[in-house]
Simulated assay, not measured.
Amino acid sequence: MNILPQQLNALDILNIFIEEHRICSPLDFEADVNFILNFNTTVSDWRCARDLMPWRPLSRFLNIEFNLTVSEQQWKAVLTPARKRTLRDVCELIAQHCTFTSVTPVQLLENSCLSASVFITLKKYLARRGVQVDELKPSTLIAPYLDTDFSAMIEQIGILARGNKVFEVLDFTSTTHLDNSFFNLPSTPIALETGSILTFRDVVEKIIAVNDPYRSCES
């Protein structure tokens, strides 16, 4: 039976951080888009590259992102001193305490469907992060959710994808050349470009694809 593995190891955590950096740093003028993260990257360099907060609020944020209950003292041991501690220390601590379980297919009309399970799991992860998911369907467009809950979306999609690339394109592009009354665009002169990933169904199928050649539904 096909499954979506979710027992995250230290390398998975590192890849999640790398993908977050790839997506988020171009949108933050104080981040270093060219910095290359690896296990030997110091916490200080990681924080500078991503324009992250000091260690104490960062530790609370990481607990929320990865659904952890790691104590402040445990975080302090891997986040300080920032010029000596490395991402390996951080990733190993997170991997040690992660409790994500693998996603298994559900039965739909006598078929085994992994995509339905992944969609349900993504909704659960987003709801845990405070995202309103009551009206969320596979056909729902992702752009409005990225607009209102960007951080939670990127984090939780990244966790399910185990740091693999889901968004080939994710950028803010100018729309000043368009007639807003015709395209029904907001008054802001930018829009989020997501390439071929337009709906939550697209997100789910890409998550499955990047985790390996699993088929979303099998007879």
Rank of each mutant, 00 (worst) to 15 (best):
A82M: 13
R83T: 14
K84Q: 15
K84R: 14
K84I: 13
R85W: 05
R85S: 15
T86M: 10
T86A: 13
L87H: 11
D89R: 08
C91F: 09
C91E: 13
C91W: 10
C91I: 08
E92W: 01
E92G: 05
L93K: 12
L93W: 10
L93F: 09
L93Q: 11
I94D: 14
Q96C: 11
Q96N: 14
Q96W: 05
H97Y: 14
H97L: 03
H97P: 03
H97Q: 15
C98M: 06
C98L: 05
T99Y: 07
T99G: 07
T99L: 11
T101S: 13
S102P: 03
S102H: 03
V103D: 04
T104K: 11
T104M: 04
T104Q: 08
P105H: 03
V106L: 07
V106G: 01
L108V: 14
L108Y: 04
L108H: 06
L109D: 10
L109E: 12
L109P: 00
N111R: 15
S112L: 09
S112C: 06
C113E: 05
L114F: 02
L114Q: 03
S115T: 04
S115D: 15
S115G: 01
S117V: 00
V118H: 02
F119W: 04
T121N: 08
T121K: 09
L122R: 02
K123M: 07
K123F: 02
K124F: 03
K124A: 11
Y125I: 04
Y125L: 15
Y125C: 08
L126D: 06
L126K: 06
L126M: 11
A127E: 14
A127I: 00
A127H: 10
R128P: 01
R128H: 10
R129W: 07
R129P: 00
G130D: 07
G130T: 03
V131Q: 11
V131A: 08
V131N: 12
Q132I: 09
Q132F: 10
Q132K: 12
V133A: 06
V133C: 13
E135R: 10
L136R: 07
